[in-house]
Simulated assay, not measured.
Amino acid sequence: MNVKLVVFDLAGTTVKDDRNVHKVLQKALAKHGVTVSLEDCNDVMGLPKPIAIRDLLERRYEGSRPVTAAWINEIHKRFVEEMILFYKTDPSVGEKEGVSDTFRKLKAHNMKVVVDTGFDRQITDPLLERLGWKSEALIDGSVTSDEVERGRPYPDLIFRAMELTNVNDASQVVKVGDTISDVHEGQAAGCGMVVGVTTGAFSREVLSEAKPTHLIEQLPQLLDILEI
């Protein structure tokens, strides 16, 4: 396979995540009187967060308030504020083991590296600044859910990443992520390889049901698959 572009998810794939996103989402909903479990939140990981919030409200809210776009936006605003604060200040924030080295080796082999995410740009920029990948020229770009018409599991994020890097053939793209929606996104785009990471939101057993082309535990294992 002639790989020209590798598209990586952020939280849970390349960024350490001890269910931190789950907890912030749970807290944002609790502030509005909606109780959800961490497992409920796990079910919607990888999706654009307004869609995830709507899904959780429709499944778990037992009150009489209508689930409107305005209410979803209120909760999402709270979620964004809390995530920005977390990514700017929490000492646990950092990349998963071997990520920067993996990016360097991919780029040394003339492969473009882009990150895509279910977050919007407001959350993503502070995170990327904290990680230092942009200043160290380890990534060629980033795509967020609010920059495309449809987020995961649709292929729009990957198609945007291809536009940013002048890659025209999806069969030359590798998608890497830790959620079922990551896998479905890669499949919908027609990526030549779709790699599930089993040490994030979903277990090997659950991810395997989505039928990725490969499963790995740690990101550097991707280099073996690509024979680097």
Rank of each mutant, 00 (worst) to 15 (best):
C191P: 06
V197S: 07
T35S: 14
P126F: 09
V143P: 10
D17H: 01
G186E: 05
E81T: 11
S145R: 01
V34P: 00
S37E: 12
R160V: 11
V44N: 11
K112N: 15
G46Y: 14
S142T: 14
Q187T: 10
T198P: 12
N42Y: 02
I228P: 05
L128K: 08
A108K: 15
E209G: 10
L138N: 04
T14N: 06
G94M: 02
K4N: 01
P48M: 14
G118D: 00
R160C: 09
Q187L: 13
V6K: 02
A108N: 15
N20H: 08
N166G: 10
F8A: 03
L215T: 04
R130E: 14
Q187M: 06
V3K: 02
G132L: 13
G200D: 13
G177P: 03
L128P: 07
S37I: 12
E81A: 14
V6I: 09
P220L: 04
V34T: 07
D169I: 13
D18E: 08
L207P: 12
D17L: 02
Q218I: 06
R19T: 00
E205T: 13
E58C: 05
W133S: 11
V99I: 12
E129Q: 15
F103Q: 08
K88I: 01
I139H: 10
V143S: 12
R60H: 10
G200Y: 14
S64Y: 11
E58F: 02
M45I: 13
T13M: 00
H76R: 07
D178S: 04
G141T: 13
E185Q: 13
S208G: 06
G141L: 11
T35K: 15
F119I: 00
A69S: 14
E129M: 14
I228E: 01
F202E: 11
R152F: 01
P50F: 12
V183R: 02
I123T: 09
W71T: 03
K77N: 13
L138S: 04
V3I: 15
R60V: 01
P220S: 05
A189Q: 02
D55H: 13
E82S: 06
T124A: 11
V176E: 12
K105D: 11
